[in-house]
Design a protein around this nucleic acid. Sequence first.
DNA 1: CGGCCGTTTGAGTCACCTCAACCACGGTGG
DNA 2: CCACCGTGGTTGAGGTGACTCAAACGGCCG
Lengths: 239, 239
Amino acid sequence: MPRAKACLGCAVKDKALCKALSPEDLAKLNRLAYRKRYRAGQMISGLSAPEAWCATILTGVVKLTKSLPDGRQQIVGLLFPSDFLGRPFKTTSPYAAEAATDVALCCYNRGHFEGLLAEQPELKQLLLERTLDAVDASHEWMLLLGCKSAKERVAALLVLIAHRLAPDAPRAGAAQPPLRIELPLSRAEIADYLGLRLETVSRQLNRLQAAAVIKRVARRGITICNPRELERLAGEPLQ
Amino acid sequence: MPRAKACLGCAVKDKALCKALSPEDLAKLNRLAYRKRYRAGQMISGLSAPEAWCATILTGVVKLTKSLPDGRQQIVGLLFPSDFLGRPFKTTSPYAAEAATDVALCCYNRGHFEGLLAEQPELKQLLLERTLDAVDASHEWMLLLGCKSAKERVAALLVLIAHRLAPDAPRAGAAQPPLRIELPLSRAEIADYLGLRLETVSRQLNRLQAAAVIKRVARRGITICNPRELERLAGEPLQ
DNA sequence: CGGCCGTTTGAGTCACCTCAACCACGGTGG
DNA sequence: CCACCGTGGTTGAGGTGACTCAAACGGCCG
């Protein structure tokens, strides 16, 4: 019973991949699924063990990182609730996944999931579309890493996080009302995501505050006073 | 007859997406497909017209670019023969495609292609795996753009191009023999791909030559004298 | 209270950028 | 055949945004 109910009461059931499944297939997946929890900072999957499972993020934020032998590190993606974590059809994951905040996952065996993909065209379709979107998002971040100034990068990150953490807030141009967000990343992690140093991030946040675009509250709290200006500073691409 | 033969004699038939198709389905696609040619520098698809077709690269190199309103530009991907060009399931492409060299494409209507995807699980599977690989490749490039020095970037680009243009050369560690490649990009384009200025690219190529790692011949010719050292300089990631 | 950690702030440096001149090559036309 | 010019690439000199190193700050916890 608790198992059968798990999916029905799931917080992300309307947004995660599993929304593509029929009730009976959902029940099937449900029998195979299990929850996992991680504390902020814990490694979820690294280079060593070939991960045998995939997952949907239920709560919290997961960061995907790649690193160089000498310790330089780049965060190549952030996963929010309803996002998919894992690399089907490959035994070795090309990145490490780490809990940025406390995280809850809904996990399923990778082999089983691949089997389900094979027999459920709609599931595969949804995964394909999400993967295509992931490519687009990566390309957008490449534009940021290759071209943008420190100020633009920080602004862009705040816009990204605001959109993911408060998805119901009015999108694009009309986003007028001040918005309060809690950063899921430390300064060092922000720097790793933006290709900057943490000192630079700190200074740019200062400047944004001085310009009355944001207001910092405590370590990780941010009030976006002027969302429109922030989006302008972030520099939306032409295409 | 010429149509029917087109696929059978295709230079990329064993590597492109269409290798997933059965002979009869290949014939079906073949009836819908048509060739297109572009000269180096020509725009293939931009932001304006929602592209109504997808394609396989037959010969040449295509660059995918994103740009900012003020003219800053980033190359977010290079496509080589057998690669897939297009954005299924979206009417507006998030990037512009331009011929870096003279290019020949094998094009098919986007709607038809999507229909074929729906009825051919193996085709969809192959596209999914390629898209997953594209995400991995983008992540790798994000590591480059976020962390690496100018010298490492230039070395990494040469390694990438060498692997794509001379795929038969021994991969990884053992790549000993000198290798001659022709750059498909101008200095300015290389800079746009690496997040550098063209002057910096020029200087770094000089240094690589001074270190006897490469030898430049004419404008776009490069002989890689020491492939192993070049790969070391490029800095392979831990994961 | 004292030590620790994440963050901020400051001062000095450097890798890469900017601006500008120069060069080599190829095509054009007198 | 050679002067001319346009394009793409190289080289040099100087500037600067972000980095590096270092110190101080301020919560939090034992």
